[in-house]
Design a protein around this nucleic acid. Structure first.
Lengths: 334, 334
DNA sequence: CTGTTAGCGCCTTCAC
DNA sequence: GTGAAGGCGCTAACAG
C-alpha cells in the first residue's frame, strides 16, 4: 500500500487559494456570486490538490445521500444480474451510487441489510427477487420509497415490476404457428413455479386463438437439460407427429435439441424448438442456435430504477404490478 | 408509496426518554457510565421508535464510513459475479456495506466511479477485472487501500489476487494421466488471452513430467462451443488415436463432447473430456457431466476482502500477486 | 463579490 | 450518573 495521501478537505483548498471555505464552496459548485478570477483559482487549486468533496458531510447537510440500495434475494441465480446491471447503469448516470446487498434468500438477513441501508440513509431501495412468486413486503411505513423487481410484493399498495410470462408464451406459440407448425408440444420445468404455470396459461390462450390443440400433455419436471432429453424421448414415442417443441427454458430446450438429434430428427426442419429466457451462453452456442423468448430484464431494471428516481423526486407512484413485455429472439432452431 | 415515516433521530429518542442526547448515545453504545435503569429505558424507547443511528453523521465524526467499493470492469462476464458475491458476503459479516460500480470496460467511467467512491469516503476498494491480463493501477497514492482481484495490477507495489491458471492446467493433465490417458489433445480459446497461454504452459509442464507428448498441436481459436465442435472434427481426422481432450473452457468442452458423440465416440470410454472454469450450468447439464477445473473464485473473493480488511485495519500488506489455487471437480466425462 | 454564522446528527471530552 | 459544549466537512443564509 502506497503513500496513503490523507483526504483533502475544502478548508485545505480554501486556505491554499486564500479564500474562505464559503467562497470556495460557491466557486466549486457554481453557486452564488463569485468573481471568475477567484473561481478559476479555486478550481485550479482543487484540481491540483485532488479535492473530492466529502459526500458524507454534504449528504448529512442536505438530507439526501444520493445513494440507493439494491436488495437481492439471490444474486447467484440467472435473473438478478441483468436487472442489477441495468439498475446500476441507470443510477450511475444520475450520480447515484448503489449499495449492493445479497440476502441469500434469508429473511433475517434481508432485515439486517434493510436496517443497514436505512442507517446509511439511502434515498430508495430496489428489491430484486429470483422467483416470480409474490413476496411479502420489506416492511411497512418505510422512510424511503421501495420498488420491487422480478418478484412482486404481495401488498397491492407497493409498486412492482415483473416479466410478462403469459405474454411471452403467447409470443412463442404465435411464432411457432407462423412457421407453419401444427403439432406443438410443451416441455417445461417445475410445476410448483408460478412462471411455469403462467407460461402454460399464455400458451393455451395462443393455441386456442389459433384453433390448435396441444400435442400431448404439458410435461412438467425440473428445469434441466436432462429433463429436456428425457421428456423428448418420451414425447417422440407417444407423439411422433410432433413438429414443434415449446420448451419452458433454454436449458430444457438444449436437452430437447440433443434428444431430437439423437433420434435422427432435424432441427428445425422436422421439429422446431423454441426456448425461453434467452440465456445467451446456452442459446447462441446451441447447434442450431435457439430461437427463444427474451425476458427484457435490462428494460425491467431500467424501469425499476426510473420509477424509484421518480419517487425519490417526490412524485407519488401509481401502486400495483407492472408487466414488462417479453420479446422473441429469432435464431436458427425455428 | 405509504406513509413515509420521517427518520427518527437520537434527539427524538433522548427527549422521549427524558435524557440528554449524550446519555442516550452512551446508553445505546454501552459506553461510559449509565445507570442500568436509564440504559434500559433508552433502549426501549429507541426500539419502539425504530431508531437507526444516522451512519452518515457517525461516519463523518469517526472518520471511517464502514463502506467499501467494488469496481468491476465487466459485470456481465462469467468471472466477476462469484467474486462479487464472495466479497459482499465477507464484508456483510464485518458490518461493511459495499458500493457496486460497473465501469463496463471503459477507463473514463472507471475514473468517474473512483472519484465517486472516494467522495463517499469508502474505506477501501476492490477492483475486479474480467480478464487475467495485468491492468494499469487505478491511481497513484490513493487515500485508501486497493486490492485487485482476478486481473492483477501491473504495478508490483499493489496487491493482487489471481487464479492460478498454470497450476490448474497441471491439475487437469495429471487427472487425465491418472485415468490412464496417453494421447491428450488440447483445444482452447483465443491465443491472445494470457489465460489460454498460461494453461498451455501448465499443460506442457505436466505433460513433460509424465513423459508424454501432446497429441497434435494446441488448437487455438474462440471460446465457443462451435469451435469445440469444429476442432474436434479436425482432431479426429488427423489424430484418431486421441483418447483425451483437455478443453480450454467448459464451453469448448461442450462442443467437444457433442462432436465426439456425432462421430460415434463414447465419452469417457473412448475419449475423456476435461473442461475448465466449472461453469455449473454448462458442466453439470452436459451428458455426461463435465469433469472440469474450478477457479475457486469464491475463495479468491473472500481472500481479497480479507486482505482489504487487514489493510483497512492499518496493517501493511505484502505487495505482489498472489495465486489462488484451482481444483479439479470430478464428474462423469473422465 | 466575499466572509461570518449556523447548523445537519452523532460521539467524546469534561464539568457538574 | 448525567448534561453541556465542541466539532467532523459541508452548504445556506445572511452580513459586510
Amino acid at each position: 500500500m502506497a503513500g496513503m495521501a490523507k483526504a483533502v478537505t475544502l478548508l485545505d483548498v480554501a486556505k491554499r487559494a486564500g479564500v474562505s471555505v464559503a467562497t470556495a464552496s460557491k466557486a466549486l459548485n457554481n453557486r452564488g456570486d463569485v468573481s471568475s478570477a477567484t473561481r478559476e483559482r479555486v478550481t485550479e487549486v482543487a484540481k491540483t490538490l485532488g479535492f473530492a468533496p466529502n459526500e458524507l458531510a454534504r449528504s448529512l447537510l442536505v438530507g439526501r445521500s444520493s445513494t440507493v440500495g439494491i436488495l437481492t434475494s439471490d444474486l447467484d441465480g440467472r435473473f438478478a444480474l441483468p436487472i442489477l446491471i441495468a439498475v446500476e447503469d441507470a443510477c450511475g448516470t444520475g450520480e447515484l451510487s448503489v449499495f449492493l446487498c445479497d440476502a441469500r434468500g434469508d429473511e433475517e438477513s434481508e432485515q439486517h441489510h434493510l436496517r443497514a441501508l436505512l442507517s446509511r440513509r439511502v434515498d430508495g431501495i430496489i428489491v430484486v427477487g429470483s422467483r416470480t412468486e409474490a413476496r411479502p413486503p420489506l416492511g411497512h411505513n418505510l422512510p424511503v420509497p421501495v420498488v420491487y423487481a422480478y418478484a412482486p410484493s404481495d401488498d397491492p399498495n407497493d409498486v412492482s415490476l415483473v416479466t410478462d410470462n403469459v405474454g411471452g408464451a403467447v409470443l412463442a406459440v404465435r411464432h411457432l404457428v407462423s412457421r407453419g407448425r401444427r403439432h406443438i408440444a410443451h416441455i417445461t420445468g417445475d410445476r410448483g413455479y408460478v412462471a411455469a404455470n403462467d407460461r402454460v396459461l399464455g400458451m393455451n390462450q395462443a393455441l386456442a386463438d389459433a384453433g390448435l390443440p396441444l400435442c400431448g400433455d404439458v410435461m412438467f419436471s425440473e428445469w434441466s437439460e436432462r429433463w429436456g432429453r428425457e421428456a423428448t424421448a418420451k414425447l417422440l414415442s407417444e407423439h411422433p407427429e410432433v413438429d414443434a417443441v415449446f420448451a419452458g427454458s433454454d436449458q430444457i430446450a438444449r436437452g430437447v435439441v440433443d434428444a431430437l438429434h439423437a433420434a435422427g430428427r432435424a432441427v428445425p426442419e422436422d421439429v422446431a424448438v423454441m426456448g425461453y429466457d434467452n440465456w445467451e451462453v446456452l442459446a447462441t452456442n446451441s447447434d442450431p442456435a435457439l430461437t427463444t423468448i427474451d425476458l427484457n430484464l435490462e428494460l425491467l431494471g431500467r424501469e425499476a430504477a426510473g420509477y424509484l428516481l421518480q419517487a425519490i423526486d417526490g412524485q407519488t407512484l401509481l401502486p400495483g404490478v407492472r408487466h414488462v413485455p417479453a420479446r422473441v429472439i429469432t435464431r436458427e432452431s425455428t
